[in-house]
Amino acid sequence: HRQALGERLYPRVQAMQPAFASKITGMLLELSPAQLLLLLASEDSLRARVDEAMELII
């Protein structure tokens, strides 16, 4: 289940942060499945989480 969510998330994360897409997707997969579904449904929520992840990385 998580694998399938990751496969759906990755291209969207890659479009926002290509250099760190794998790392960010891995970080996002730590969230609950319900939270992941919310990110897939909301571009704004996904962008906010990706921005948060980038702050942790750099």
Results as ranks from 00 to 15, higher is better:
A15N: 11
M54F: 12
L9E: 01
Q17I: 11
P11L: 14
M27N: 02
D44V: 12
L29P: 00
L46P: 00
L5W: 11
L39M: 13
P33E: 10
Q3W: 05
R49H: 10
L40R: 00
M16E: 02
A21P: 03
P33W: 11
L56V: 13
E7I: 08
L38D: 09
Q14E: 14
V13T: 01
L29W: 02
L36Q: 02
D44M: 10
P18I: 06
S45H: 11
L31G: 06
S45W: 04
T25Y: 09
L29T: 01
R8S: 10
A21N: 01
L28H: 00
Q35W: 06
L39G: 01
M27W: 15
S45E: 11
E7T: 10
L39F: 03
P11T: 15
R12K: 14
V50Q: 00
E43F: 04
G26E: 15
I57S: 02
S22F: 11
G6K: 14
I58K: 08
P11A: 12
V13I: 14
A53Y: 13
Q35T: 06
M54W: 03
M27T: 02
S22W: 05
A19C: 08
P18R: 06
L29A: 02
E55H: 14
R49T: 07
Q35L: 15
L38S: 10
Y10H: 11
R8H: 06
M27C: 04
L37A: 15
L31K: 04
P33F: 13
R8V: 11
R49Y: 13
V50T: 02
E43R: 06
E7Y: 07
D51T: 10
Q35D: 06
R47Q: 11
Q17D: 03
M54N: 03
A41N: 14
L37H: 06
M54K: 15
F20E: 04
D51E: 13
A15T: 09
L31R: 04
L56K: 13
E55D: 12
P18C: 04
L40D: 04
Q3Y: 08
P33V: 10
P33C: 13
E30A: 06
Q35F: 13
A34H: 08
E7L: 12
D44W: 03
I24R: 00
L29Q: 02
L37E: 15
Y10R: 04
I58Y: 09
A48I: 14
P18G: 06
E7F: 04
Q17G: 03
M16Y: 15
L56S: 14
A53K: 05
L56M: 06
L39S: 05
A48S: 12
Q17A: 15
L40H: 01
S32L: 09
L46G: 00
Q17E: 04
V13Y: 01
I58P: 03
D44H: 04
D44L: 10
R2W: 12
Q3F: 03
L40W: 03
I24H: 00
A53E: 02
S22A: 15
K23G: 05
R49E: 06
H1S: 04
M16L: 10
L9V: 06
A53G: 02
R8K: 14
D51I: 07
D44T: 07
A19H: 07
H1F: 08
S32N: 12
L28I: 09
E7A: 07
L38P: 06
A15D: 11
R49V: 09
L31N: 03
P18V: 03
A41H: 08
L56F: 06
A15M: 13
L31F: 12
E30N: 06
R12M: 15
A4R: 09
L5C: 06
V50C: 03
E52D: 08
A41R: 06
P11K: 15
Q35A: 12
A41F: 08
M16V: 07
A21I: 01
L38T: 08
L37D: 05
P11N: 15
K23E: 09
E55I: 05
H1T: 14
R49P: 01
E7M: 11
I57H: 02
S22Q: 09
D44K: 09
Y10S: 02
L46Y: 01
R8F: 14
L5S: 04
S42W: 03
K23H: 05
L56P: 01
S45P: 01
L56T: 11
S22L: 08
A15E: 12
A34K: 14
R47M: 08
P11Q: 04
L5P: 03
K23Q: 13
L46F: 08
M54T: 06
P11H: 10
L29G: 02
L46I: 05
S22Y: 15
S32E: 09
L37Q: 07
A15Q: 09
A53M: 07
A48F: 09
P33A: 11
E52W: 10
E52N: 04
A19V: 14
K23C: 08
D51Y: 11
L39I: 13
H1Y: 10
A41G: 13
L9N: 00
R8D: 08
A53Q: 07
A53H: 06
R8P: 01
P18F: 06
A15I: 11
A4Y: 13
H1Q: 07
L40F: 11
A4L: 13
L40P: 00
Y10A: 14
D51C: 06
M54P: 00
E43Y: 10
K23Y: 07
L5K: 02
Y10Q: 03
L36H: 03
E7Q: 12
T25S: 06
Q14S: 09
P11D: 10
V50I: 11
L29K: 05
E52M: 13
I57Y: 03
V50A: 01
D51P: 01
P11M: 15
D44Q: 11
L9Y: 02
D51H: 07
Y10L: 15
A48M: 11
A21L: 03
L28E: 00
Q14I: 12
S42Y: 04
P11S: 14
A53S: 09
A15H: 12
Q3E: 13
L46N: 00
L5M: 14
L38V: 13
L39H: 02
M16H: 08
R47G: 05
R2D: 14
L9Q: 00
S22R: 08
L38H: 06
R2G: 13
R12S: 10
A41D: 11
I24P: 00
L31S: 09
L46A: 00
S32T: 14
F20W: 09
R2A: 12
L37P: 01
Q35R: 06
Q3M: 06
A34W: 07
S22C: 10
A21W: 04
D51M: 10
R8A: 09
R8N: 08
M16A: 03
Q3T: 08
E30D: 15
T25V: 15
I57G: 02
S32A: 13
Q35E: 10
L29M: 09
F20D: 05
S45I: 05
L28V: 01
H1A: 05
R8W: 12
A48G: 08
L29D: 01
L5H: 04
E43A: 08
E30H: 06
Q17T: 11
M27H: 03
E55G: 14
L29C: 04
Q3H: 13
L46E: 00
D44Y: 08
L31M: 09
Q14R: 13
V13W: 01
P11Y: 15
Q35K: 07
A21T: 04
P33Q: 13
A48C: 10
L36S: 01
Q14D: 07
Q14A: 14
Q3D: 15
D44G: 10
Y10D: 02
A48T: 08
R8E: 14
I57P: 01
L40S: 03
M27D: 02
A19P: 03
S22D: 11
E52F: 08
L46K: 00
H1N: 12
E30Y: 05
A48P: 02
S22K: 13
L37W: 05
R2C: 10
L36C: 07
Q17Y: 15
A4M: 13
I57F: 06
S32Y: 11
P33H: 14
K23V: 09
D44E: 14
R49I: 07
S42D: 06
I57C: 05
E30W: 05
D51A: 15
H1K: 06
Y10T: 02
A21G: 08
Q35Y: 15
R2E: 13
A48L: 11
E43S: 09
H1P: 03
A19Q: 08
A19Y: 11
E55A: 09
A53V: 13
E7R: 13
A15C: 07
